[in-house]
Design a protein around this nucleic acid. Sequence first.
DNA 1: ATTGAGACCTGTCGGC
DNA 2: TGCCGACAGGTCTCAA
Length: 275
Amino acid sequence: MPELPEVEQVRRELAPFLEGARVRDVELRRANLRTPFPPEFRERLLGQTVRALERRAKYLLASLSSGETLVMHLGMTGEFKVDVGRPDADPVAPDRHDHVIFTLDSGTRVTFNDARRFGFMDLVAAGALDAHPTIGGLGPEPLSEAFDAVALAQALRGKRTPIKVALLDQAVVAGVGNIYASEALHVARLSPFRKAATLATPAGAPRETTGRLATAIRQVLQQAIARASRAGYRGARFRVYDRAGEPCLRRGCGGTIRRRTQAGRSTFWCPVCQR
DNA sequence: ATTGAGACCTGTCGGC
DNA sequence: TGCCGACAGGTCTCAA
Protein backbone atom coordinates (compact mmCIF):
# COMPACT_ATOMS: atom_id res chain seq x y z
CA MET A 1 0.00 0.00 0.00
CA PRO A 2 2.33 2.55 1.13
CA GLU A 3 4.03 5.81 0.63
CA LEU A 4 4.82 8.06 3.55
CA PRO A 5 1.22 9.09 4.32
CA GLU A 6 -0.07 5.54 4.31
CA VAL A 7 2.77 4.31 6.49
CA GLU A 8 2.05 7.14 8.89
CA GLN A 9 -1.57 6.07 8.98
CA VAL A 10 -0.54 2.50 9.75
CA ARG A 11 1.68 3.80 12.52
CA ARG A 12 -1.16 5.75 14.08
CA GLU A 13 -3.50 2.79 13.96
CA LEU A 14 -0.96 0.35 15.33
CA ALA A 15 0.64 2.50 18.02
CA PRO A 16 -2.17 2.20 20.60
CA PHE A 17 -1.89 -1.58 20.49
CA LEU A 18 1.90 -1.85 20.45
CA GLU A 19 3.17 0.96 22.63
CA GLY A 20 3.64 -0.26 26.16
CA ALA A 21 2.78 -3.81 25.14
CA ARG A 22 4.98 -6.78 25.91
CA VAL A 23 5.70 -9.42 23.28
CA ARG A 24 4.52 -12.81 24.44
CA ASP A 25 5.10 -14.71 21.22
CA VAL A 26 6.26 -14.29 17.64
CA GLU A 27 5.31 -16.75 14.95
CA LEU A 28 7.27 -16.71 11.72
CA ARG A 29 5.31 -18.53 9.08
CA ARG A 30 8.18 -18.46 6.61
CA ALA A 31 11.93 -17.86 6.72
CA ASN A 32 12.07 -14.65 4.76
CA LEU A 33 10.23 -11.74 3.27
CA ARG A 34 12.27 -9.74 0.77
CA THR A 35 15.24 -10.67 2.94
CA PRO A 36 15.71 -13.38 5.55
CA PHE A 37 14.68 -12.57 9.10
CA PRO A 38 17.73 -11.83 11.23
CA PRO A 39 19.17 -14.62 13.37
CA GLU A 40 17.26 -15.37 16.56
CA PHE A 41 14.59 -12.91 15.50
CA ARG A 42 11.86 -14.50 17.57
CA GLU A 43 14.01 -15.14 20.60
CA ARG A 44 15.33 -11.59 20.66
CA LEU A 45 11.81 -10.17 20.61
CA LEU A 46 10.27 -12.39 23.26
CA GLY A 47 9.54 -10.59 26.50
CA GLN A 48 10.45 -7.18 25.14
CA THR A 49 8.24 -4.18 25.63
CA VAL A 50 7.57 -1.79 22.77
CA ARG A 51 8.47 1.66 24.01
CA ALA A 52 7.32 3.60 20.96
CA LEU A 53 6.24 3.05 17.39
CA GLU A 54 7.74 5.67 15.14
CA ARG A 55 8.15 6.26 11.44
CA ARG A 56 11.10 7.25 9.30
CA ALA A 57 10.25 7.72 5.61
CA LYS A 58 8.35 4.54 4.70
CA TYR A 59 9.83 2.55 7.57
CA LEU A 60 8.11 1.71 10.83
CA LEU A 61 10.46 1.70 13.81
CA ALA A 62 9.46 -0.04 17.00
CA SER A 63 11.88 0.88 19.76
CA LEU A 64 12.19 -1.91 22.29
CA SER A 65 12.99 -2.09 25.98
CA SER A 66 16.42 -3.57 25.20
CA GLY A 67 17.33 -0.49 23.18
CA GLU A 68 17.10 -2.41 19.95
CA THR A 69 14.82 -1.27 17.14
CA LEU A 70 12.48 -3.47 15.16
CA VAL A 71 12.56 -2.05 11.63
CA MET A 72 9.62 -2.89 9.39
CA HIS A 73 8.89 -2.03 5.79
CA LEU A 74 5.59 -2.72 4.05
CA GLY A 75 6.95 -2.99 0.52
CA MET A 76 4.10 -2.70 -1.98
CA THR A 77 1.46 -4.87 -0.38
CA GLY A 78 2.34 -5.17 3.29
CA GLU A 79 -0.33 -4.57 5.92
CA PHE A 80 -0.98 -5.23 9.57
CA LYS A 81 -4.10 -6.80 10.95
CA VAL A 82 -4.99 -6.43 14.60
CA ASP A 83 -7.03 -9.06 16.34
CA VAL A 84 -8.06 -8.11 19.84
CA GLY A 85 -8.52 -11.72 20.78
CA ARG A 86 -11.61 -12.57 22.73
CA PRO A 87 -11.22 -15.75 24.74
CA ASP A 88 -14.47 -17.23 23.45
CA ALA A 89 -13.80 -16.47 19.79
CA ASP A 90 -12.67 -19.19 17.42
CA PRO A 91 -9.13 -18.65 16.23
CA VAL A 92 -9.01 -17.24 12.72
CA ALA A 93 -7.23 -19.44 10.19
CA PRO A 94 -4.18 -17.63 8.87
CA ASP A 95 -4.26 -16.31 5.34
CA ARG A 96 -1.57 -17.73 3.06
CA HIS A 97 0.15 -14.33 3.08
CA ASP A 98 0.16 -13.93 6.84
CA HIS A 99 3.90 -14.11 7.44
CA VAL A 100 4.49 -12.85 10.98
CA ILE A 101 2.15 -13.02 13.95
CA PHE A 102 2.99 -11.10 17.10
CA THR A 103 1.05 -12.08 20.19
CA LEU A 104 1.09 -9.50 22.96
CA ASP A 105 0.65 -10.05 26.68
CA SER A 106 -2.86 -8.63 26.36
CA GLY A 107 -3.75 -11.45 24.00
CA THR A 108 -3.95 -9.07 21.08
CA ARG A 109 -2.48 -10.49 17.91
CA VAL A 110 -0.82 -8.30 15.31
CA THR A 111 -0.38 -10.02 11.97
CA PHE A 112 1.85 -8.89 9.12
CA ASN A 113 0.39 -9.85 5.76
CA ASP A 114 2.26 -9.23 2.51
CA ALA A 115 1.27 -10.91 -0.74
CA ARG A 116 4.25 -9.82 -2.80
CA ARG A 117 6.76 -10.05 0.02
CA PHE A 118 8.56 -6.87 -0.93
CA GLY A 119 8.42 -5.86 2.71
CA PHE A 120 10.99 -6.80 5.30
CA MET A 121 11.75 -6.81 9.01
CA ASP A 122 15.05 -6.38 10.73
CA LEU A 123 16.27 -6.02 14.29
CA VAL A 124 18.88 -3.34 14.82
CA ALA A 125 21.15 -3.00 17.83
CA ALA A 126 20.96 0.05 20.07
CA GLY A 127 22.61 3.04 18.45
CA ALA A 128 23.12 1.28 15.14
CA LEU A 129 20.11 2.64 13.29
CA ASP A 130 22.04 5.31 11.42
CA ALA A 131 24.42 2.65 10.19
CA HIS A 132 21.60 0.48 8.90
CA PRO A 133 22.00 0.00 5.14
CA THR A 134 18.51 1.24 4.32
CA ILE A 135 17.83 3.76 7.08
CA GLY A 136 21.28 5.30 7.04
CA GLY A 137 21.10 6.55 3.49
CA LEU A 138 17.76 8.29 3.77
CA GLY A 139 17.46 11.96 2.95
CA PRO A 140 15.50 14.50 4.98
CA GLU A 141 12.05 13.74 6.31
CA PRO A 142 9.81 15.91 4.11
CA LEU A 143 7.55 17.04 6.93
CA SER A 144 10.42 18.06 9.18
CA GLU A 145 12.28 21.33 9.58
CA ALA A 146 15.23 19.74 7.83
CA PHE A 147 13.40 19.75 4.53
CA ASP A 148 13.11 23.03 2.70
CA ALA A 149 14.05 24.66 -0.60
CA VAL A 150 17.69 24.87 0.43
CA ALA A 151 17.91 21.18 1.27
CA LEU A 152 16.06 20.19 -1.88
CA ALA A 153 18.25 22.34 -4.12
CA GLN A 154 21.33 20.83 -2.54
CA ALA A 155 20.08 17.32 -3.18
CA LEU A 156 19.13 18.02 -6.80
CA ARG A 157 22.28 19.88 -7.68
CA GLY A 158 23.96 18.40 -10.73
CA LYS A 159 21.46 15.57 -11.07
CA ARG A 160 20.90 14.60 -14.67
CA THR A 161 17.81 12.49 -14.08
CA PRO A 162 14.33 13.86 -14.70
CA ILE A 163 12.89 15.51 -11.60
CA LYS A 164 10.17 12.87 -11.23
CA VAL A 165 12.80 10.13 -11.08
CA ALA A 166 14.90 12.18 -8.65
CA LEU A 167 11.93 12.47 -6.28
CA LEU A 168 11.77 8.69 -6.05
CA ASP A 169 15.37 8.65 -4.83
CA GLN A 170 15.00 8.26 -1.07
CA ALA A 171 18.29 10.07 -0.53
CA VAL A 172 16.75 13.22 -2.01
CA VAL A 173 13.54 13.23 0.00
CA ALA A 174 12.64 10.29 2.18
CA GLY A 175 9.16 8.88 1.83
CA VAL A 176 7.89 10.19 -1.49
CA GLY A 177 6.80 7.38 -3.80
CA ASN A 178 5.41 7.02 -7.27
CA ILE A 179 2.00 8.52 -6.61
CA TYR A 180 2.99 11.58 -4.61
CA ALA A 181 5.92 12.36 -6.90
CA SER A 182 3.45 12.90 -9.73
CA GLU A 183 1.03 14.70 -7.45
CA ALA A 184 3.61 17.12 -6.06
CA LEU A 185 4.89 18.02 -9.52
CA HIS A 186 1.38 18.84 -10.63
CA VAL A 187 0.81 21.07 -7.63
CA ALA A 188 4.13 22.79 -8.32
CA ARG A 189 3.28 23.14 -12.03
CA LEU A 190 6.57 21.50 -12.97
CA SER A 191 7.09 19.02 -15.79
CA PRO A 192 8.17 15.57 -14.58
CA PHE A 193 10.64 15.48 -17.50
CA ARG A 194 12.53 18.58 -16.50
CA LYS A 195 16.12 17.82 -15.58
CA ALA A 196 16.48 17.73 -11.79
CA ALA A 197 19.48 20.03 -11.87
CA THR A 198 17.37 22.85 -13.33
CA LEU A 199 15.77 23.20 -9.90
CA ALA A 200 19.00 24.47 -8.41
CA THR A 201 21.63 26.97 -9.38
CA PRO A 202 24.98 25.49 -10.40
CA ALA A 203 26.18 26.29 -6.90
CA GLY A 204 23.32 24.29 -5.43
CA ALA A 205 21.22 27.21 -4.24
CA PRO A 206 17.45 27.12 -4.52
CA ARG A 207 15.44 28.79 -7.26
CA GLU A 208 11.85 29.94 -7.17
CA THR A 209 10.83 26.55 -8.61
CA THR A 210 12.68 24.72 -5.83
CA GLY A 211 10.61 26.44 -3.21
CA ARG A 212 7.42 25.69 -5.10
CA LEU A 213 8.29 22.02 -5.27
CA ALA A 214 9.34 21.71 -1.64
CA THR A 215 6.08 23.34 -0.59
CA ALA A 216 4.09 21.13 -2.93
CA ILE A 217 5.70 17.97 -1.57
CA ARG A 218 4.82 18.93 1.98
CA GLN A 219 1.33 19.90 0.95
CA VAL A 220 0.40 16.70 -0.87
CA LEU A 221 1.83 14.54 1.91
CA GLN A 222 0.09 16.48 4.65
CA GLN A 223 -3.22 16.42 2.81
CA ALA A 224 -2.90 12.70 2.21
CA ILE A 225 -2.24 12.07 5.89
CA ALA A 226 -5.23 14.16 6.88
CA ARG A 227 -7.42 12.37 4.39
CA ALA A 228 -6.09 8.89 5.18
CA SER A 229 -7.43 9.11 8.69
CA ARG A 230 -10.89 9.23 7.19
CA ALA A 231 -11.00 7.76 3.71
CA GLY A 232 -8.05 5.41 3.40
CA TYR A 233 -5.90 4.85 0.38
CA ARG A 234 -8.45 3.33 -1.90
CA GLY A 235 -10.95 6.07 -1.63
CA ALA A 236 -8.27 8.67 -2.09
CA ARG A 237 -8.62 10.91 -5.07
CA PHE A 238 -5.60 12.13 -6.91
CA ARG A 239 -4.98 15.16 -9.04
CA VAL A 240 -3.15 13.31 -11.80
CA TYR A 241 -2.23 9.80 -10.67
CA ASP A 242 -4.14 7.12 -12.59
CA ARG A 243 -6.16 9.79 -14.38
CA ALA A 244 -4.78 9.46 -17.93
CA GLY A 245 -7.23 10.81 -20.49
CA GLU A 246 -9.20 12.75 -17.90
CA PRO A 247 -9.29 16.54 -17.68
CA CYS A 248 -6.74 18.46 -15.66
CA LEU A 249 -8.37 19.68 -12.46
CA ARG A 250 -6.50 22.96 -12.34
CA ARG A 251 -8.91 25.85 -12.74
CA GLY A 252 -8.87 27.20 -16.24
CA CYS A 253 -6.21 24.78 -17.51
CA GLY A 254 -8.26 22.63 -19.85
CA GLY A 255 -5.43 20.15 -20.41
CA THR A 256 -5.75 16.36 -20.51
CA ILE A 257 -3.76 14.17 -18.12
CA ARG A 258 -1.27 11.87 -19.79
CA ARG A 259 0.70 8.84 -18.73
CA ARG A 260 4.24 7.88 -19.65
CA THR A 261 6.82 5.49 -18.25
CA GLN A 262 9.90 6.91 -16.56
CA ALA A 263 12.53 4.63 -15.05
CA GLY A 264 10.04 1.81 -15.29
CA ARG A 265 7.32 3.59 -13.33
CA SER A 266 4.18 5.33 -14.54
CA THR A 267 4.24 9.10 -14.52
CA PHE A 268 1.04 11.11 -14.82
CA TRP A 269 1.09 14.79 -15.72
CA CYS A 270 -0.72 17.61 -17.45
CA PRO A 271 1.28 18.78 -20.48
CA VAL A 272 -0.52 22.14 -20.46
CA CYS A 273 0.09 23.50 -16.96
CA GLN A 274 3.23 21.61 -16.00
CA ARG A 275 6.37 23.18 -17.41
C1' DA B 1 29.74 8.38 -9.56
C1' DT B 2 25.43 8.11 -11.71
C1' DT B 3 22.00 5.98 -14.03
C1' DG B 4 19.03 2.53 -16.19
C1' DA B 5 17.46 -2.19 -16.49
C1' DG B 6 16.32 -6.20 -14.33
C1' DA B 7 15.09 -8.83 -10.30
C1' DC B 8 12.33 -9.94 -6.48
C1' DC B 9 6.83 -11.84 -5.81
C1' DT B 10 1.71 -12.36 -6.29
C1' DG B 11 -2.66 -10.59 -7.68
C1' DT B 12 -5.84 -8.32 -10.79
C1' DC B 13 -7.61 -6.66 -14.88
C1' DG B 14 -8.49 -6.18 -19.82
C1' DG B 15 -8.32 -8.28 -24.35
C1' DC B 16 -8.83 -12.15 -27.30
C1' DT C 1 -14.35 -19.66 -19.26
C1' DG C 2 -9.43 -19.66 -19.96
C1' DC C 3 -5.12 -17.97 -21.13
C1' DC C 4 -1.71 -14.20 -21.63
C1' DG C 5 0.39 -10.00 -21.13
C1' DA C 6 0.61 -5.64 -18.77
C1' DC C 7 0.63 -3.48 -14.66
C1' DA C 8 0.69 -2.48 -9.43
C1' DG C 9 1.79 2.24 -4.04
C1' DG C 10 9.21 -0.29 -3.34
C1' DT C 11 13.95 -1.11 -3.20
C1' DC C 12 18.20 -3.66 -4.21
C1' DT C 13 21.90 -5.20 -7.30
C1' DC C 14 24.43 -5.25 -11.27
C1' DA C 15 26.39 -3.61 -15.55
C1' DA C 16 27.36 0.26 -18.45
